[in-house]
Design a protein around this nucleic acid. Structure first.
Length: 582
RNA sequence: GCGCCCGUAGCUCAGUAGGAUAGAGCGCAAGAUUCCUAAUCUUGAGGUCACAGGUUCGAAUCCUGUCGGGCGCACCA
């Protein structure tokens, strides 16, 4: 569906023809030859760097080579014009009918437009959120979650078999704290005065419910027992409670994971031991003493022999410890086992999306994945920067202690899932994002969420109006409309824009950068709104022309195209394309 | 001290795996419009792409260094 691929095939064929003619050497490598839109639309529709890339190895002048290429491309159907420009660009312009054909393709595909099989069905594991199961999801995690979820949709769109996965960190110190905090609340539920929640415990009131629930179920049976007796059951109960709350939060965001993997289960199943044994077998473990960290004072630091993984052999800065001083595994060790587990489940490609504050951990886990998969597995980590929340320009201060931190639920209840999701992917993920509660709710063209969805709604509105004017027009049967009458320069421009959608989807998917699609959709919406406005000045450009049924049908076809592309895009975002604004 | 990310118009940001004269929105300036299909429209000014080198046909993009900002830096996750 990406017509640039089609044109590139023609270019490659032309290059082969030049090889046959002796103008290029046998075995010419055309892999760097591109077919992409020129920066300036006045240059044409497609531009190729072929002559410039091939000139040097062939010992030719780029412009001369370009001229020869032009001769080969000139008579191919639907190409209107081929010319040489600048240092040796070959610019191609398509005939207008070409865009009509693209529109027909769009109409046929509907909201599936942009779908492709680029991924060849390859399995990709996308791990995201993976927040500690110790409380509701913070709004900061919300961005990570949405960026990853949209990326998952995007990769599916281009033909990957994506598994959305959540790693439950239920084995470490935080989970233990959660269990202890819950035990405290349990005692409280049984009437004990527990006073202030001690430092280091989770003070959140949501744990009261957990304590109460255990008291209701078990009465005072845990009260007289030692910690080692109640710790595991309390942890399990609390983690389950937190996870179901987290699932609710995720659901609010429109996110559903297919697989949840528990760190505890991995340990109990022996997966961690097996991973360590594997690294040992490869000779990648040793016991040693690390240098103290520089530039940061660690009060209780002491030289201590530790079990270390040779991360430096795989590009990390220092070797990394696998065991804590109390003899339990570090988080890292469990994580290695987890990624090994994913690999063994058939995922050669893994993507993790984390908050930017975990950036320091990336090299470590990537090097471990390289080691334990013998280079056959690839882990890509995407970092997502913080979100700064504002309310009408005033920064919203967040403090966990003061209880003023913003949860995902808070935000969704205020602005809705769709606005939240759209805004969260509207910027490059490694850039900070400002989120203003007031601005994102505004119904003006300054608000991109509104602007894009309004274009979709407006397109439906036009269809409704058309139905009144021409009750006999079937909006699903427009493929025989006289598209060649769509010849205003802005109509052509819109058609070209729409035809570029599959390429945008591919680029965004390959770069793992869904935010690009926001900008593109904004452009489509803008071009559509512009045409609408143009109809105010030039009556002939109005979409519905009571005395010209066929031109109306052509215009409706174009509008269906706009609908398809915007719906296709918003669906990737997990945003519902609305048919009416309220 | 080290590692990672970032630095583009007054502001917020794009920049399509190295392409041609670096773009958009807001704001600013000028003008149009009170019409209609649904929430105005058009035009304009505005830039040493942080800085300095390098790589090559060609650099905002890649490499090196400098400056500035963010994050992180045994045994937390």
């Amino acid at each position: 569906m990406n017509f640039f691929h089609e044109i590139r095939k023609h270019i490659l064929a032309a290059i082969q023809a030049l090889v046959a003619d002796g103008d290029l050497p046998e075995g010419t490598d055309a892999s760097r030859v591109t077919a992409e839109p020129p920066r300036d639309e006045s240059h044409g529709d497609i531009s190729t760097n072929a002559a410039m890339v091939l000139a040097k190895p062939a010992g030719k002048n780029p412009r001369e080579l370009a001229e020869k290429l032009v001769a080969k491309l000139q008579n191919i159907g639907l190409i209107a014009e081929v010319s040489v420009a600048g240092p040796g660009f070959v610019n191609i312009r398509m005939v207008d009918e070409f865009w009509d054909q693209q529109l027909l393709t769009i109409l046929e595909a509907g909201a599936d437009y942009g779908k492709s099989n680029l991924g060849l069905g390859e399995k990709i594991n996308l791990e995201y959120v993976s927040a500690n199961p110790t409380g509701p999801i913070h709004a900061g995690h919300g961005r990570v979650a949405v960026v990853a979820d949209v990326l998952a949709n995007l990769l599916e769109k281009v033909g990957y078999a994506v598994t959305r996965e959540y790693y439950i960190n239920d084995a470490g110190g935080q989970a233990k704290k959660l269990a202890c905090s819950s035990y405290l609340r349990y005692r409280e539920a049984l009437g004990e005065d527990i006073g202030e929640i001690p430092e280091g415990y989770y003070p959140g009131p949501y744990l009261k419910d957990v304590g109460q629930a255990i008291a209701d179920r078990d009465g005072d049976k845990w009260l007289s027992l030692d910690e080692e007796e109640w710790l595991d059951p309390f942890r399990e109960f609390a983690v389950n409670a937190m996870m179901s709350a987290i699932r609710e939060d995720l659901k609010l965001m429109g996110i559903t994971h297919e697989v949840f993997t528990s760190e505890m289960d991995l340990q109990r199943s022996g997966a961690v031991d097996r991973a360590v044994a594997d690294l040992e077998e490869q000779g990648l473990l040793y016991t040693g003493v690390l240098e103290p960290p520089k530039g940061k004072v660690v009060e209780d630091w002491e030289p201590r022999p530790q079990l270390l993984f040779k991360a430096t052999e795989f590009g990390d800065d220092v070797d990394r410890p696998l065991k804590k001083s109390d003899g339990t595994w570090t988080y890292f060790t469990g994580d290695i086992a987890y990624h090994y587990d994913k690999f063994q489940r058939g995922f050669k490609q893994m993507i993790n999306v984390w908050g930017a504050d975990h950036g320091g951990y990336v090299k470590r886990i990537v090097s471990a994945v390289n080691a334990i998969t013998r280079g056959d597995g690839r882990l890509d980590v995407i970092l997502s920067q913080m979100v700064n929340f504002f309310d009408n320009g005033v920064a919203v201060k967040m403090s966990k202690r003061a209880g003023t931190f913003v949860t995902v639920r808070d935000v969704i209840e205020k602005v809705g899932k769709d606005v939240f999701r759209f805004m969260m992917v509207s910027r490059k993920s490694d850039a900070h994002l400002d989120f203003d509660f007031k601005k994102v709710m505004e119904q003006t063209k300054d608000n991109p969420v509104f602007y894009v969805n309004y274009a979709h709604a407006r397109s439906h509105s036009v269809m409704r109006m058309a139905k009144q004017e021409f009750p006999d027009i079937d909006p699903t049967q427009l493929s025989d409309a006289p598209l060649k009458r769509l010849r205003d320069e802005d109509e052509i421009r819109l058609l070209k824009l729409l035809a570029g959608w599959p390429r945008q989807v591919e680029i965004a998917a390959q770069a793992h950068e869904p935010h690009r699609l926001c900008y593109y959709l904004y452009e489509v919406a803008g071009q559509f709104h512009m045409l609408w406005n143009k109809g105010k000045d030039e009556a002939i450009l109005r979409f519905i022309l009571p005395d010209d049924r066929e031109l109306t049908r052509a215009r409706l076809a174009m509008i269906k195209g706009v609908q398809a592309v915007i719906a296709s895009g918003l669906t990737i975002f997990g945003v519902e394309p609305v048919e009416e604004m309220h």
